[in-house]
């Protein structure tokens, strides 16, 4: 019986050698396909701006973050999972955005859906640059219904007044100049 460590840092046990070759290939190849579509680079205005839903979750460091306490800042809330190819692809650009803008008052919260630290942590080590913003853990995916998310990744931007301003359905290039400008303009308000 063999033990395979896949790229996601997960372990699979399987007795058939041919099968585990496929398992390894499958885990690698599924994201490879998925790399084909380009990430887009714009945020769209929320059609009817309203107060952001509640978000109070533990981080990987076992602290609790409540979005209510972040009023006065621009908060980027990104819903993601390690098995979601566009989520994986946009993660480095999210970190670059954070590095560029955190001193100006921008906060990034990445809400992982349904995974544990043993799954998330090895993935974060593969991201370059590795995320330094808080990763929140939503074990039961409750926040997705609160925020009316229909697909991953989905990202929202909450303005300093606590209202939803922008949203992005699907993967984005977060450090693209056009997208960055949208956020910088919001930070100036």
């Amino acid at each position: 019986m063999s033990l395979i460590k896949a790229s996601y840092g997960m372990f699979v046990v399987h007795p058939d050698p041919l099968k585990w070759i496929w398992l390894l290939l499958g885990v690698w190849l599924l994201p490879v396909y998925a790399d084909l579509p380009p990430l887009t680079h714009g945020l769209t205005l929320v059609p009817q701006p309203h107060t952001a839903p509640a978000l109070r979750l533990p981080t990987m460091d076992d602290e609790t973050i409540d979005i209510e306490a972040l009023k006065g800042k621009v908060v980027v809330v990104n819903f993601w999972a390690t098995w979601c190819p566009p989520c994986r692809r946009e993660m480095p650009s999210l970190e670059r955005l954070y590095q560029t803008s955190k001193e100006k008052g921008l906060v990034v919260l990445a809400v992982n859906i349904g995974e544990d630290i043993d799954t998330i942590f090895p993935f974060l080590g593969t991201v370059d640059p590795s995320p330094s913003f808080p990763i929140l853990l939503d074990n039961d995916s409750h926040s997705l219904s609160e925020w009316k998310v229909r697909g991953l990744p989905t990202t929202f931007v909450v303005g300093p007044d606590g209202n939803l301003v922008y949203q992005a359905v699907g993967g984005r290039e977060f450090n693209h100049p056009a997208l960055l400008q949208q956020l910088l303009d919001l930070l100036k308000e």
Partner: peptide, 13 residues
């Protein structure tokens, strides 16, 4: 199962 995409690049995979 259901989704709404704003113009300018919203998408899902």
């Amino acid at each position: 199962p259901e989704q709404a995409y704003q113009p300018g690049g919203d998408w899902n995979q």
